[in-house]
Every structure is written in C-alpha cells, then in structure tokens.
C-alpha cells in the first residue's frame, strides 16, 4: 500500500527545469531517505509534495488524494529556520497541537515529552532570537514530532547539529518511527546518515533532476556502522554520487 505516489513530476522555475519527469512510490510505514547534490531540487520536491508550491506537470498523491495539510496529518521540518519569532520555544512547539485542537492535558504531556527529547527543557520560555541555530532546529524537530504525524517530511533536519546530538536524535527518530509506524521522507547530504536510517535510499541526479537509482538497505536495527554490509552499501551510494 503506498502512502505517497509521485507520477511524472516536473517543476520549472521560468527557464530552469529543476525536476524532470520524476516518478516513485513511498510505502506506508516506510523510512525513505533522499540524497542528491546541492541545488538538485530536494527542497523543491518536498515543497511540491506539501502543496506549498504548484507543480508544472505531474501528480503527487498522499493516500490516493491531493495532499492537504488540513486533512492529512503531515509534519514538515524545514531546512531553514521557521519558528515563529513572537512565540517562545514552548509556544512554538505547542502551536501545531493547538491548531489540531489536542486537549490541554494531552498537549502538556506531549509537550513535556518532546521538549525533554530534544533537550530544550531549560529554555522553554526563551524567544527564538535568544537561542542558537542548533536549538532553533531542535524546536522545529520537536514541533514536528509533537503532532504525531502520519507522514513526516524532514529536509536536512540534522545539518545544524553537532555529532553527538545528531547520533542521539537519529536513534530517537528511529525509535519514534518504530513505535508510531508512520512514514518518513528524510532528505540528507550525509551518506552515512542515510544508510543508518533508511529502508530505502533514492539517489537523485544533477539538474534536470531524476531518480538516478534506488538502493535498498535491508539491515537489522539498530545498525552498526562497522558492519561490513553497512560499509558496502555506503560505498555503493558513495560511488553513485561520485559523478556529482
């Protein structure tokens, strides 16, 4: 059963063709990583999927219908900071739940859990301009987790974080995903990260962008980066993108 199905997706900005006739499916409950060169259109793809910008050609369906954030329970962790400057850390994280009218008691419980998860308990009352880039990114991550999305879109979410925090949040993401059985589309630059997380990796080409190849990662979790099979897949992906 496919959660997301993309058919013949093309996106042009004026003369610039960014995505050209891209088609693929994402299964329900799948963890999909997308890797591709900078500027190939990864962010553009997620924006199309979320219906934030219109496609030039082609279709994207979520649960066999047009994506609609008011109907589908989607969360999007943007690449760029996107917290609301006039809301404190806590109120930013709570906002999605407020929109979705989660009962207050349930909301408080979830808030406490996600805030603790991303390690922001000490700064819940600060405004975004008072915290670091890494902390702001964690606000976005917590905000996305808090609404228990069916479909979680993450655009290079861990790029701003230091190594230790990244490893920790990768494991937490896998834990949350295993528990909730949601579908995750995770964009990254980091090949090791993609092999560590994904059920399947889509490797994109340069512009005009198509799916260059799919790589299945059929390894048990938690994964061991020292496992020879892990290295083999990592090298395979690395070879695929050597030509960027």
């Amino acid at each position: 059963m496919s959660k997301v199905s993309v058919t013949g997706l093309t996106k042009e900005f004026g003369d610039l063709t960014v995505l050209k006739d891209v088609s693929f499916e994402v299964n329900k409950g799948e963890f999909l990583c997308i890797v591709g060169p900078t500027g190939c259109g990864k962010t553009t793809f997620l924006n199309l999927l979320a219906k934030l910008i219109p496609a030039t050609k082609g279709t994207i369906y979520i649960d066999n219908e047009e994506a609609d954030p008011k109907k589908h329970n989607i969360s999007f962790v943007f690449q760029e900071p996107s917290s609301l400057p006039w809301r404190t850390v806590k109120d930013n994280i709570a906002y999605g739940m407020q929109v979705k009218k989660i009962p207050p008691a349930e909301m408080e419980a979830r808030l406490e859990k996600v805030i603790d998860l991303v390690g922001l308990s000490d700064c819940i009352n600060l405004y975004p301009n008072e915290i670091s880039a890494s902390m702001e990114q964690r606000v976005a991550i917590a905000r996305a987790f808090a609404t228990n999305p069916d479909l979680l879109l993450m655009d290079e979410p861990y790029g701003q974080l230091d190594l230790k925090l990244r490893f920790y949040l990768e494991d937490e993401l896998i834990r949350i995903w295993t528990e909730s059985k949601n579908t995750v589309i995770f964009i990254t630059h980091n090949i090791e990260e993609s092999v560590y997380l994904a059920d399947r990796i889509l490797v994109l080409s340069n512009k005009p962008t198509t799916v260059k190849q799919e790589v299945l990662v059929d390894l048990p979790r938690p994964r061991n980066i020292l496992d020879p099979e892990f290295s083999r897949i990592r090298n395979q992906v690395t070879d695929l993108i050597k030509w960027w």
């Binding site: 008011k70 943007f78 760029e80 906002y95």
Partner: peptide, 16 residues
C-alpha cells in the same frame, strides 16, 4: 514566506 509555510504545514487556515 517560510513563516506562512510553517503555519500551513501545521494545519493552519488563512485566518490563522
């Protein structure tokens, strides 16, 4: 514009 995107993705309507 990314602020509008954030609100929209969290399920907000145009009034929000």
């Amino acid at each position: 514009p990314s602020l509008y995107h954030a609100i929209r993705m969290l399920g907000g309507n145009s009034r929000q």
